[in-house]
Amino acid sequence: MTAHGTPRNHDHAHRWPEISFQDRMDTVRFDVHERAHIVVDGSKCEGCSTQHCVVACPANLFVPTSDGGIVFNYEQCFECGTCYLVCNVEGAITWTYPDGGHGVVFRRT
């Protein structure tokens, strides 16, 4: 068993290249299909107090608008399922898999 103490001279911030969210998503390959496999009914979102999808979606695809609604883009989606699980408003999210052969293609995962 080893115990590391408090850091001494460690300036541990920013020791790897900064990466913007778009650059992060650009590391992922998507074969986008013209059909949106996830559809968000923005009118349902207007009454949503939690907007859990906004913080939980790993691909950051749910963007809140100033009038309390949500703008959603399906293209760079991991097809993980997080959004439909954390959303509490019935009917706000219609979730399907993309058509066969399309969507995310992982390579080193």
């Binding site: 541990h12 969210f21 650059d23 992060r24």
Partner: peptide
């Protein structure tokens, strides 16, 4: 992704991964 960034900057993890470039980002349940 901010939570991963927090992990990577922890003094026990940072020396293992510093200087490394993100090659792929991914998610799954």
């Amino acid at each position: 992704e901010e939570i991963i960034a927090g992990l990577k900057s922890h003094p026990a993890i940072a020396p293992l991964v510093e200087g490394a470039e993100v090659k792929e980002y991914s998610a799954h349940l």
